[in-house]
Each structure stands twice: as C-alpha cells, then as structure tokens.
Simulated assay, not measured.
Amino acid sequence: MKNVKWVFVLYALGAVLSMFMIGIAVGVKSFLLAIAAIVSLILIMGNGFKTKKKLREQGLL
C-alpha cells in the first residue's frame, strides 16, 4: 500500500464510472447521455495518461 498513487486510483474510478454511464445511456436509449459519457471517458483517460507521462518524466514513477 505504500506505493499506491492515489491520483491514478481516482482516474481509474472516474473511467469506470464513465463506462457504466455508457451502459446506462444505452439502456435508457439516451443519445446525449451516451455522447457525454464517451467524451468524459476520453477526457479522464487522456488526463490519466498525461499525468503518468509527466510523473515518469519527473522520475516519480
């Protein structure tokens, strides 16, 4: 537990919630909710990868 990077845990949880929202949007047949969930998934995962690259370049990973 010492080496856990909590920021990445939060990014992962956000991505999973966005994926859940895509499923819910399909279930309720909401096109706008599906688009919003997909955009949010792309933004969350992009920020996660950007943060990982930044930390790797600083030697913190």
Rank of each mutant, 00 (worst) to 15 (best):
I38G: 09
I22H: 02
G23S: 03
L43P: 02
G14V: 02
G23H: 07
G27T: 08
L32K: 08
M21L: 07
L41R: 09
S30D: 15
L33S: 11
A25P: 05
L13Q: 10
G46Y: 01
A34H: 12
K50S: 01
L33K: 02
N47F: 11
G46C: 06
A34S: 14
L41A: 15
L43M: 11
I35E: 06
F31I: 13
I44L: 07
M19Q: 09
G27K: 05
L17R: 10
V28L: 05
G27V: 00
A25I: 03
S30H: 08
N47I: 00
A25T: 06
A34E: 15
A12C: 10
L32F: 12
I22N: 04
F20T: 11
Y11L: 02
G23K: 03
I22F: 06
M45A: 14
T51A: 02
M21Q: 07
V26E: 13
A15K: 01
V26G: 04
V39L: 15
L33C: 08
I24Q: 07
A25G: 15
I38L: 15
K29P: 00
L41N: 11
G23T: 04
V26I: 13
S30G: 10
A36P: 01
A37K: 04
M45W: 09
L43E: 05
K29E: 14
A12M: 13
K52N: 07
V26Y: 13
L33D: 06
I38H: 05
M45D: 09
S18D: 12
L17C: 12
L43T: 14
V16Q: 13
M21T: 02
L43C: 10
A12T: 12
L32Y: 10
G14C: 05
M21G: 01
F49K: 10
F20V: 15
G46N: 05
A15W: 03
G14S: 12
L33Y: 08
L43W: 10
S40W: 07
G27S: 10
A37C: 04
F49H: 05
V28C: 01
G14L: 08
V28H: 03
S18T: 10
M19D: 12
A37G: 09
A15T: 03
S30P: 05
I42F: 13
K50W: 00
S40T: 15
F31A: 10
M45S: 14
L13G: 14
S40Q: 14
V16L: 14
M19C: 14
F31H: 14
S40H: 15
A34D: 07
S18G: 12
L33G: 06
F20C: 15
A36T: 09
L17W: 08
A12S: 13
L17P: 01
S18E: 00
F31S: 09
L17M: 15
L33V: 07
V28S: 01
G23Y: 08
A25N: 09
V28T: 06
A36N: 06
S40V: 09
G14E: 09
F31K: 13
M21E: 13
K29T: 12
V26C: 07
G46D: 06
A36K: 05
I38P: 01
K52F: 03
M45P: 00
F20D: 07
V16C: 04
F20K: 06
N47T: 02
I42Y: 05
G46M: 02
F49T: 09
V39A: 15
F31Y: 15
G14H: 03
L41P: 00
S18W: 02
I42R: 03
F20E: 07
I44H: 02
V39R: 04
S30F: 01
S40R: 11
K50L: 05
I42T: 12
N47C: 04
G27C: 00
